[in-house]
Design a binder for these strands. Structure first.
Lengths: 205, 205
DNA sequence: GTTAGCATGTAAGGAGTTACATGATTTT
DNA sequence: AAAATCATGTAACTCCTTACATGCTAAC
């Protein structure tokens, strides 16, 4: 049930969870957040907002702080139904749930869910990556011999990158398990839950 | 002029450059080659082949080796015009040229172009990544302070990954420059042009 | 015998981009 | 004065995926 287009919805809901915002700002924050993938266009953001309004996941709120004479901005706020929907999307386990964009968005909003869901997402992503790793490496042994060196090098680099991400996820999972002190708080604690910083050098070389 | 959809075209042309193939096999090879991104569906491959036939970039060839009683397979071969188009796409410098998928495909078919183009592609990709790195890191200093730790961690990981790719590209560029012995040959030479294998530990930490 | 893989296609629909349309304000 | 940024939207179009349609063969 987690369709591809739910990613924008999740992102908007996640951002509004941190406070009301208008469209233009949502787009900026989102593009900064995704940064490495595609940039979101107005052509998809505004219609998405309209759709979410109709579904009463968000509401327009009176714009208190429009600087004098400015074009009146439309500020959005998340509703109770919206928050419910957000939590549902965060914990969804559908087939598209572990794709790059979808995972990144979820991860970025981890502060707005609880540990149970965080762990489920991290572990889901990890096992998905491991599956792919196994499948690709298996097929490499059968076909790669006849393939040119550049394709082989690309594969090698790809495998290495994914292995790195798996290690990263493992560290996060370990941290999440070892650290009970993170109830849904927005302000970060004194000691962050992320123990890495430099590579754990997981004797994989 | 390098539209998004040219990626399939480039990939098909590149594969057929290594010898004639039928649709089903093209899809398999491609999905193995991309592996980490989306998988290509028949719904986009076959129409693309039809389109390329009309544009005479490829031709159907008599299927010599259909195992007895098998459904007759339609085998495609690249034409002279197709090869020209392939080289043009490989050396293209348009705005979509440095995106993940597009770069991966180009890289995988490096054996089918000459060093000049290989260097252009590698350097183009690298400077694109460096631009993004600079932009993101600049914006981080301004905004990241107020952002939650998970978003921050995601960013840290993203930056680290991109930095790794930049180092990888730098190694490849160096290898490409230092090694003149790679004329368009399909069979790999005794000593491959890729000098890495383990990380160069580029004192960036 | 039934599932999985080989093999080629089409039609409908979803999701998002590009380009267009508009206009104020701030910076250079 | 021009260019960039703020700010919101719509319409057309592209590209791709999903699901359907068909049928044969090899493996379990």
């Amino acid at each position: 049930m987690a369709r591809r287009g739910d990613t924008i919805e999740l992102a908007v809901l996640g951002l509004l969870h941190e406070g009301p915002m208008h469209g233009y700002e949502l787009r900026k924050r989102l593009n900064l957040m995704l940064g490495w993938g595609r940039v979101l266009s107005y052509g998809s953001l505004y219609p998405a907002l309209k759709k979410m309004l109709r579904a009463t996941l968000i509401t327009e709120v009176a714009d208190t702080s429009t600087p004098v004479n400015r074009r009146p901005r439309i500020t959005y706020e998340v509703t109770a139904a919206g928050n419910e929907h957000f939590q549902r999307l965060m914990s969804e386990v559908g087939p598209t749930a572990w794709e790059d964009d979808n995972f990144d968005i979820r991860f970025a909003f981890f502060s707005s869910t609880d540990m149970e869901i965080r762990l489920r997402v991290l572990e889901g992503r990890r096992s998905r990556l491991q599956e792919r790793l196994a499948r690709v490496q298996g097929e490499l042994e059968r076909t790669q011999a006849e393939v040119n060196r550049y394709a082989a090098e690309l594969n090698r680099h790809g495998v290495e990158s994914v292995e790195r991400e798996v290690r990263w996820l493992s560290d996060l999972i370990r941290a999440e398990r070892g650290d009970e002190s993170s109830p849904t708080s927005t302000t970060p604690a004194t000691s962050p839950a992320t123990p890495h910083g430099s590579t754990p050098r997981a004797s994989n070389d």
